[in-house]
Design a protein around this nucleic acid. Structure first.
Lengths: 203, 203, 203, 203
DNA sequence: CATGAATGAGCATTCATTCAT
DNA sequence: TATGAATGAATGCTCATTCAT
């Protein structure tokens, strides 16, 4: 008979994960030590190991989460868009990526800044870590698929020019989203609205 | 009076840097140890410290170099383009980023793959490291300026629509370049030609 | 060009090994930490790792050495005996195992007590560690072979009864040697001479 | 008033002990963790502490048991032997040590292999642990006493030569038993019958 | 100048033990 | 009584950096 309920266990796991995310965002995956995470979470040094087998497992969880939380709204927008033009899709997506916080599965707000910083680090990590790569590529493809489908509907409806195959156009959209994300977090892009506006104008 | 000529010293420094780049590309900044670099360069463990004050300094040098080598051709294209459309500029740039090697200051070929992998890691690094950030942002702004100027000339010549201020359009171009670079190295983008073609088509 | 000569390197390796042996003899393989060994050897915590890849490797070295040093004299006796009776062989061997010290390859005296305590621990270790087992079994067989040959010569000369095949009789001799060794170190056998005398009497 | 009967308590204690013995035999005293034992016994991590104050106490119990279970039959043989020759005594003892299982106090069969592996580890342990040493030495002396008495009866009856004082001859017998035990478990002695036969032949 | 041995702080992880429930 | 979550000290090992030669 467990002394803590599965809910409490899950809550504590989430707390440790949130602490890890704060540390990773602030100091980086490799500059953050396990004691750092434990201290940030307010637990003992051994406690995280009751919830995660290794630091690596925490990194994989954080990496997967970061992409999921950032791009879930984008997927939702793509899925809900009847006949989006590329520009509409982009504009809606950038609005999400420009928010202050998003809401995680448990309903807690998570700073977008934190997620962005973890996402950028995940790109580094996936170059060498197969578990991270698998998660990240899967997430990437999922979003791309949603966008592809939205563009297909757009072409059918005539809102999107048919000159470019949707799955290839979706790569361009992903490229712009990533490029935006990166400039926002690393290259002092402050006027986030302009980025979307300009895309609309140019297309 | 130095016992080795400045030329030899510079050559050895470059060798150590090239070794570090291979290590960083293969194993990552933080999974690469200083002994790893020394071994890869075929020098003693202490030798790198006669050319660089710390590992940090090597990372800064590599990070700066990666961006410079990758984007110098882009800058050159931008500077040399009389009246580029955005699409022309992108197409020429992507061609460079799709090459096998670029040539460094000393005339040695450097695999683009290696540079791309270091570049992605640099994005992580600059989030926390001010020296890296300063170099990277400076490089970013330099390229953006070149592109801005090319676009201005394009607008003057009528090849580029005037609806979007050039310095803002240049951000879009940089976003697409970064997005392309990332997909090429991390998200299995193999048909690099299509990416450029599609941009031309859509614009 | 190495800064220390191979001789000095070997000497230092031997010093660390000797320190490890003292620690292991006093506290046991698993109660001895790597810092303990470093401290006992008067070097820094990292130093032993320049000579041994792991604690395991030190244990294997010590285990192999303990048997070699203890039984090399026994092998020499067996090899040098023209026509030994079993009793003569035992008596000579027990004398060696009753000495205060034996001399190692470098000519340094090593307390037999220390070796005996390590040997007993090696028996535990070989139950689970294949590297230790391989070394120990090889050493065991080597000694048994020497004894077998001595007994064969003894049978030829008529000094040893032919009723028992030499290789089986050698197992008995090994058993008595191990039994003696164990009682000496663990079961308060002080009258070591009596043990040998009684064997001679009974046979 | 205890909530569980003393019988149930004793049974559970025995189960934990049996689980510990399996773990110790398989993985060694020091490679086995308390959670390992609890898991093997199918109880919670805290449960063993209601029966044993510490891991050390479990080791002491196992160590004492191993010797007792292995040598009780030997003692019984010695006690029951009217006028044993040394060879008869050895032969009967080796037969016991060659069996597959022995029966413990509660009537459960215990694999001899398991006991032998624990016994060898006990030799290591007693070098440093006074509680283990005390138990082991007491067990050793008890068996030796039984053998001594059997030999005395044998001398009186003329079946055993009087040349060697019985208490000293008993040391030889113990040495051979230990040597046999060790070779059986650690040095690939498979023909256990030959060992006893050869002793008889040589004496 | 170059070498490579040495240092020692730091890290991921384990585990005996405790104790609130 | 029994549970199992939590603790926190300890361990094996790595590595950036120094410096005697």
């Amino acid at each position: 008979m467990p002394r803590i309920t599965p809910e409490r266990r899950e809550a504590k796991r989430a707390e440790i994960l949130a602490a890890a995310r704060r540390c990773f965002s602030r100091d980086g995956f490799h500059q953050t030590s396990m004691p750092d995470i434990a201290t940030e979470a307010g637990v003992s040094a051994g406690a995280p190991y009751r919830y995660f087998a290794s630091k690596e497992e925490i990194i994989v969880a954080i990496a997967g989460d970061a992409f999921r939380l950032l791009f879930e709204p984008v997927e939702r927008i793509a899925a809900g868009t009847r006949a989006a033009s590329v520009a509409d899709l982009m504009a809606a997506s950038l609005e999400v990526l420009s928010a202050e916080t998003v809401t995680d599965a448990a309903g807690h707000p998570v700073p977008v800044e934190e997620l962005l910083r973890c996402a950028v680090q995940t790109w580094s990590e996936l170059l060498r870590d197969d578990a991270v790569r698998a998660h990240a590529v899967e997430g990437f493809e999922s979003v791309r698929r949603s966008i592809t489908e939205a563009l297909q509907r757009g072409q059918t409806a005539g809102a999107v020019p048919s000159a470019v195959p949707p799955e290839r156009a979706a790569r361009l959209v992903m490229g712009l989203l990533h490029g935006f994300l990166l400039q926002r977090v690393a290259f002092e892009l402050t006027d986030t609205a302009a980025f979307g506006d300009d895309i609309r104008t140019l297309l």
